[in-house]
Amino acid sequence: MKTLMAFDYSLPTDPKPKVLVIDEEGNPITGCSFVEETYPNRQFVMSVPGVVKLVGDSDVVAAAMQTRVDVAADYDRVVGAGEWQVIWLDAPRESEMFKAAQQKRSSRIVANLPSITVLEITIGGEAAPKSPVH
C-alpha cells in the first residue's frame, strides 16, 4: 500500500488553484486545477478519506464526483488498483513524510546527472587558461 500525499500546489500568480499528488518517492502521480466553485471540494476530489460532504450546486457536485473517479483511475494506473491511500497535507514543507519524499527525488535526480569531464585544450601550442566548471 502506497501513501500518496495531496497538497495545494498553487502559486500566488496562478489563475486557478492547483492540487498536486506525489508518492512516497516524491514522484508526481496526478494533479488538478480548480475553479472557485469546485475548490472547496478538493479533498473529496483527491480521495482523502473521511471527506464526504460536497459543497455547491448539482453541476459542481457532479463535476467533483466525476473528477474523483478520474483521479482514482490515475492512482490505480500509476500505483496499482487499490494499492494506495491518500493523506492531505495542509503544510507540506512541515511534513517529515513530504521532506523525505523530496529528498529521495532530489537524490535520484542528482544520481542520474551525467558526469562532467574537463578537457584541457591546447591552442597554438599553449595551454588554454583553466577555468572552473559551473
Rank of each mutant, 00 (worst) to 15 (best):
V35C: 14
M46W: 13
V61L: 07
G125C: 06
G31E: 09
D57E: 14
M65P: 02
T117E: 14
V45R: 07
A111I: 09
G82V: 07
F7H: 03
I22S: 05
I87F: 05
V133Y: 14
T67Q: 08
R93T: 11
E94T: 03
K130R: 15
D57V: 09
K130Y: 11
S95Q: 02
V55L: 10
A81R: 14
A73C: 01
I22C: 08
V52N: 15
P132Y: 07
V55R: 13
A63I: 01
V133Q: 11
E37R: 14
W88C: 00
E120L: 12
F98V: 05
V60Q: 03
A101C: 00
T30M: 10
S115F: 10
M65V: 08
G125Y: 04
L4E: 05
A127T: 11
M46S: 03
I22H: 07
A81F: 12
G50T: 10
N27F: 14
Y9S: 13
I22Y: 13
V48A: 00
V52A: 08
Q102R: 11
E25M: 11
V60E: 09
P92D: 09
D59Q: 13
N112C: 11
A91M: 00
T30G: 08
L20I: 08
E126Y: 06
F7D: 04
G50L: 06
G26A: 12
L11M: 04
R42T: 03
G82A: 05
A100Y: 01
G80W: 10
E37S: 15
A111E: 15
V79R: 03
V52D: 15
